[in-house]
Amino acid sequence: MDWIFLSELAINGALTGLLYSLFAIGLVLIYKASSVPNLAQGGLTMVGAYVVLALSHDAGLPLWLAIPLAAVIMFGLGFGIERVALRRLAGRPVVMILMMTLGLDIFLRGTTLAIWGGTSRSMELGVSYEPFFLGDIFVSRIHLVGAGVAISLFVAFMLFFRSRTGIKLRAIADDYMASWSVGISVERGVGLSWALASVVAVAAGVIWGEIQGVDQALSLLLLKGLTVAVLGGLDSILGAVVAGIILGIIENVGADFLDPLVGGGSRELIVAAVLILTVMIRPHGLFGRHDIERV
């Protein structure tokens, strides 16, 4: 066994995993405020990437300006989605809201396809592809950048959820009716969570767009992001980060063992297995909240 090779696999897996976390944080934000897994997060991420492209490549703005501007636009879009699509569903069965997010995902994919077409475009962040060595281990620079972004967002949101606004969002997730009864605007809270998730989608869209190009395939990140979020416990940001790292490592190391046996393509199988096993064995994930039952 080549330990250096194994640790290289593990470290790169962990970095990729943190990029899944970057995506999953958006899912967790919405789940925390409305207890619904947002199936449109993939679509939002793709839209985020396209908006950055439209501002930088098409409108000619520099990237340092285009990305924050895209974040502002997407923040507004998040609020808009709540206002137009979700407000009338407040208090309805969760499955209705779930179907609505699925519908939104299809809508966002269709819209981007109609506006920007299906050809893959590159983000051109300007991150160097020169090999970068941590000791003897080779890592990708863009993955390192993405992992840094994921960790800073994680810290920012941990702090946010201790602030007064953050506590109100957690209260909304706990009990809509009780929140209304003490004057918390549930609608505005859910809107804020969508707005924040849309900003996270810009970050994820930029990093993933740089790695795999900006096209419809970006929305398929949902599958891995959802797996990470479920493994982490759906409402835990810490869970999303830890689960991302775990899934990344399992996927990378596991695929290296399994691919020669099955002739490639085992990554998706590993992700699927993790999702299915989590739901079967530990439905509330690693850090998810339990429903409290007093005895």
């Binding site: 007064r164 506590i167 957690r170 209260a171 706990d174 009716m177 009780a178 009864s181 003490v182 909240r289």
Partner: peptide
């Protein structure tokens, strides 16, 4: 202010956070 039936405190928040949430 209406204290609704069945207590309905924010179970996953501490009492201190429950009070903060209502501010």
């Amino acid at each position: 202010c209406h204290v609704i039936e069945g207590r309905r405190v924010f179970e996953h928040l501490t009492p201190d956070e429950n009070l903060t949430a209502a501010a």
